[in-house]
Design a protein around this nucleic acid. Structure first.
Length: 584
RNA sequence: GGCCCCGUAGCUCAAAUGGAUAGAGCACCAGCCUUCUAAGCUGAUGGUUACAGGUUCGAGUCCUGUCGGGGUCACCA
């Protein structure tokens, strides 16, 4: 249960009991918020109810707040309700209320924080979707992790989530892949192919593909014209590339539910059908686009082509849906693809794209509005660039220079958990620096280590406790039954309050599609735990295991288990394995 | 030139629907190890939230403009 909603219910009940508010509750109660005060000395919870409602009720905010306070303190879990500032109401809740929240953590175990706000609604998250022309490189990691963590987060919040990868296997780039593979195939059969010519992919990774093709088909394609082998070689190479991509994603802990093929969509006539529908609706026309403002491309020519009336749906200009030779643009198949998702039941769609696609967002959203009759919603998460560094120096990532850093290389170097965590330590729309050396440092500066260390410390205490009390069940469910009344210190209760805010964090991060908040939450929780730990250094009576005081020790072990549980729950959303020991 | 994103402490970054005195880490300064992991903790210093207006009980957050950084702009995907 989200404690903020729970307290919101208490506030709502108090509001209903004020006669002056009878007329205005429906109108304004949505704007009533319950949240934690910035300064914890103000109390546990604060609400703006009086300020929001005062005007409509014809009262002064502070007067209304006073009346509400009288009602609020009648509730058994409320210790005090005080008016502050312009009309805030600060609430303090009983220690018993908070101890029960810890019991909830332990009863729910790693499911703590699961929510029903999604109500089983279907959401489609499309991410990675890298072209199947080579292995994933380091820069793909960010979108992969953000998309995957978002999918996990939405699932935890009660949505029915589909994780999807769109394979761009239909354009000119896969023909280039086929030609490049054919070269390597000839090479595998003993031919000296020399330098890889321009217009081909030079990557060494295609050597394996060429060899595999030679092994399978022998000299079958050697003397044939391109028209004879292109489709076959292309299919072979794409299959290989996709298999490699799946392997890499698997190593990152990503398991897509659906791989959608652009080629299948095109060949089934899906694109033609959608374009016909748009045409029937009068949303396509033949026109000539304005030339780009500012610097003019050398080869720009005014040409008539089929355009989509994107401006009717919020875009800035109408967008070309067909090339000047009449064939569909990439945009056209993308429109068809999004309609396909919608028809599969996903009215809510999220796409995770790289920063270079920022200019594409409005047109895709306008297209989704057009083809779904405003029923579908597309949110696009744009991932800013990742600067790969090594000890503060940029790592060059250039295919030509051969310093091509693959995702697989990075996983080998720092591990999947580090990549996943670090990729979530920035908002998606901020550039991110990824230093291969710093991210494996064992220090306060490295959030991965810091959070794992907190989790490992919890388990360290539990291991020691097991030696001392072999009869006690130290699992979450076992500790859920112990008496918690000994948890009275501000540090202990403060930590419980942090734990208790996890369900709300899941909900708000899911609603705003911001998985990075989980990483920040866990860092703060870890800091809270490390702080409490160190109090035991100064004052032995504050240690978790107190000799000769079984009730106190058990209650504190319950708290430690609660911290471990919530950290594990958060790491699960991030797709990171919690470590029980860091010593090596 | 149009459009999109960004601009918060010396540095790297937070701040749910607009909420109270804008928070962390690093660096710098002062402390804490015979101790459940010091791989850690406590405290101090540090701000006109790029700038100028506007909206309102209240703006880092919303609106307009300016400046600065990045991305992008049909016949690539």
């Amino acid at each position: 249960m989200n404690i903020f909603n729970e307290v919101g219910g208490i506030v709502a009940k108090a509001m209903e009991e004020i006669p002056e508010l009878a007329e205005v509750l429906d109108l304004a109660s949505q704007r009533v918020a319950v949240e934690s005060p910035r300064d914890s000395s103000h109390g546990d919870m604060a609400t703006n109810a009086a300020m929001v409602l005062a005007k409509r009720a014809g009262m002064k905010p502070r007067d209304l707040a006073e009346k509400l306070c009288v009602r609020l303190v009648e509730h058994g879990s409320v210790v005090s309700a005080e008016v502050a500032g312009p009309g805030f109401i600060n609430l303090r809740l009983t220690d018993g209320y908070w101890r029960e929240r810890l019991r909830e953590v332990l009863s729910a175990d790693v499911d703590y924080g699961a929510s029903t706000i999604g109500a089983g609604r279907k959401v489609n998250v499309e991410y990675v979707s890298a072209n199947p022309t080579g292995p994933l490189h380091a820069a793909h990691a960010r979108g992969a992790v953000i998309g995957d963590a978002l999918a996990r987060l939405l699932a935890k919040a009660g949505f029915e989530v589909c994780r999807e990868y769109y394979i761009n296997d239909a354009g000119a780039q896969v023909d280039t892949l086929a030609r490049s593979t054919h070269l390597r195939y000839r090479e595998a059969l003993g031919e000296d192919i020399g330098e890889i010519p321009d217009g081909h992919y030079p990557g060494e990774y295609l050597k394996d593909v060429g060899e595999a093709l030679a092994e399978r088909d022998g000299e079958r394609w050697l003397a044939k014209d391109e028209t004879d082998w292109l489709a076959e070689v292309r299919g072979f190479a794409i299959e290989r590339m996709v298999a490699g991509i799946k392997t890499d994603l698997g190593r990152l802990g990503i398991d897509m539910h659906v791989y959608s093929s652009e080629r299948a969509l095109v060949e089934s006539g899906g694109v033609d059908a959608v374009m016909q529908t748009l045409d029937d609706k009068g949303l396509l026309y033949t026109g000539v686009l304005e030339p780009p403002k500012g610097k003019m491309p050398d080869d720009w020519l005014p040409r008539p082509q089929r355009l989509f009336k994107a401006t009717d749906f919020g875009d800035d200009v109408d967008r070309p849906i067909a090339k000047s030779d009449g064939s569909w643009t990439y945009f056209a198949s993308d429109v068809a693809y999004h309609l396909d998702k919608f028809k599969r039941g996903y009215a809510e769609m999220i796409d995770v794209w790289g920063a270079d696609h920022g200019g594409y967002v409005k047109r895709m959203q306008s297209a989704v509005r057009a083809i779904t009759a405003e029923q579908g919603v597309l949110d696009v998460k744009i991932c800013q660039i990742v600067h790969m560094m090594q000890d503060g120096k940029p790592v060059r990532m250039s295919k030509r220079a051969g310093t091509f850093v693959t995702l697989s290389d990075v996983i080998d170097s720092v591990g999947k958990d580090v990549i996943r965590f670090i990729m979530l330590t920035r908002r998606n729309d901020q550039p991110l620096e990824f230093d291969l050396a710093k991210v494996i440092e064992k220090s306060r500066e490295n959030p991965v280590f810091y959070v794992q260390y907190a989790h490992a410390r919890c388990h360290s205490v539990l291991r020691l406790a097991h030696d001392t009390f072999p009869d006690l069940d130290l699992g979450a469910n076992g500790l859920a039954g112990v008496d918690l009344d000994c948890l009275t210190g501000s540090g202990e209760l403060g930590l419980i309050k942090q734990l208790a805010s996890w369900p709300r964090l899941v909900e708000s991060a899911a609603e705003t599609h911001e998985p990075h908040r989980v990483a920040f939450y866990l860092s703060e929780l870890a800091a809270g735990f490390h702080g409490l730990w160190n109090k035991g250094k100064d004052d032995a009576t504050l240690r978790f295991i107190v000799e000769g005081d079984r009730p106190r020790t058990f209650a504190r072990l319950a708290l430690v288990r609660g911290v471990a549980t919530v950290i594990a729950s958060g790491l699960e959303v991030m797709g990171v394995e919690p470590l029980e020991e860091l010593r090596s």
